[in-house]
C-alpha cells in the first residue's frame, strides 16, 4: 500500500562504507532485534529508544546523513498521509480539537497517527541503517557459507548492481530516442508514448542480456549443487557468534511469547 520513492543509487554506494570488524550477520541480527522490539512492545518509549539507538549506531558507522536522507524519503510522505488520514478524519475520536469543513481533528486521531508514524520511523531507520551499512558481497558470502541457496545470493547481488546502473541506461536510451526525434508532448498520451519508447528498448536490452548471462552462468556450473568457495573475507569473532546466537534466541522467545498466546486466543475463540 505504501510505495517507495528512495533510489537504489544510495545503496549502490553502501559497498564503499567501512563495515569495520562487525560480521554482516551480527548487523542483521542487531537490526532484526530492533525490529522485534518495536513490534513486540507497542509503546512510545520502546519506539523512541530503538529509533535513538539506530541513529546513534548510524552516527558511529558514519552513515548517519545517508540513513536520515533515505529514511526521510520514505517516512516524510508516510507521516504526511498518516496525519491527513488519521489526524483529520478519525470517526472513532471523541475529543474534538478543531472542525474545519468535513475535517475533524481529534486528540485520539493525532495520538493514533503519532504512534503509527513513530513505529514506522523506528522500523524504517533500523532496517535502512543495516542496508546502508552492510557490504552486499560480504553479506552474500556469509549467507552462502551458512547454507543459504547460492541462487539467493546471486539474485540479491545482481539485482542491486543492476538497479544502480539502470538509471544511466534509461538516460542513454532517452538521448538516443531524442536524437531520433522524440519530443515529449504535453498530456497523458504524449507521456505514455514517450514512456513506451524508453521502456520497451530497456526491457528488450535487459532480457537479451539475461539470456546471455544465463549461458555464461550455466557454463560456470551455477546450477550445480554443492558448496561454493568464496574469496570474500568475512570478519567474525567468538564474541560476535555468542552475541548473535543469544540475540536470536531472545528474539525467538519474545516473538513466541507474543505470537503463541495471540494464536491460541483466536483458536479458542473459533472453537467456542
Amino acid at each position: 500500500m505504501t510505495r517507495p520513492e528512495a533510489g537504489p543509487a544510495a545503496l549502490a554506494s553502501s559497498g564503499r562504507t567501512a563495515s569495520g570488524r562487525l560480521n554482516p550477520l551480527t548487523g542483521l541480527v542487531l537490526a532484526g532485534s530492533g525490529a522485534v522490539a518495536c513490534l513486540a512492545w507497542a509503546s512510545w518509549g520502546t519506539w523512541a529508544a530503538v529509533l535513538a539507538a539506530a541513529l546513534v549506531v548510524a552516527a558511529k558507522a558514519r552513515i548517519l546523513r545517508r540513513v536520515v536522507a533515505a529514511a526521510s524519503v520514505v517516512v516524510v510522505p508516510f507521516a504526511v498521509w498518516a496525519l491527513v488520514i488519521h489526524g483529520l478524519f478519525f470517526p472513532e475520536g471523541r475529543t474534538v480539537l478543531v472542525v474545519v469543513g468535513p475535517a475533524r481533528v481529534t486528540s485520539e486521531g493525532l495520538a493514533y497517527a503519532g504512534a503509527i508514524i513513530l513505529r514506522t520511523a523506528s522500523l524504517v531507520v533500523v532496517m535502512l541503517a543495516f542496508s546502508l551499512w552492510v557490504r552486499v558481497p560480504t553479506l552474500r558470502a556469509a549467507l552462502v557459507r551458512r547454507g543459504v541457496p547460492a541462487q539467493l545470493g546471486y539474485v540479491l547481488a545482481s539485482a542491486l548492481g543492476l538497479a544502480a546502473a539502470v538509471g544511466e541506461r534509461l538516460r542513454r536510451i532517452r538521448e538516443a530516442q531524442e536524437a531520433r526525434g522524440l519530443v515529449v508532448r504535453k498530456g497523458p498520451g504524449g507521456r505514455i508514448l514517450a514512456a513506451r519508447l524508453q521502456v520497451v528498448p530497456l526491457v528488450l536490452q535487459l532480457v537479451d542480456e539475461a539470456g546471455e548471462r544465463a549461458a555464461a552462468l550455466e557454463a560456470r556450473g551455477n546450477a550445480l549443487p554443492g558448496r561454493r568457495s568464496s574469496y570474500v573475507d568475512e570478519p567474525d569473532s567468538q564474541l560476535q557468534r555468542v552475541l548473535r546466537w543469544t540475540l536470536a534466541c531472545v528474539c525467538a522467545v519474545v516473538v513466541a511469547s507474543v505470537v503463541v498466546p495471540a494464536v491460541a486466543g483466536v483458536l479458542a475463540g473459533a472453537a467456542r
Binding site: P4, A6, V124, M127, L160
Partner: peptide, 9 residues
C-alpha cells in the same frame, strides 16, 4: 531487494 531501499514494502 526493494526493502533494502524501502523497508515498508
Amino acid at each position: 531487494v526493494w526493502s533494502f531501499f524501502n523497508p515498508t514494502v
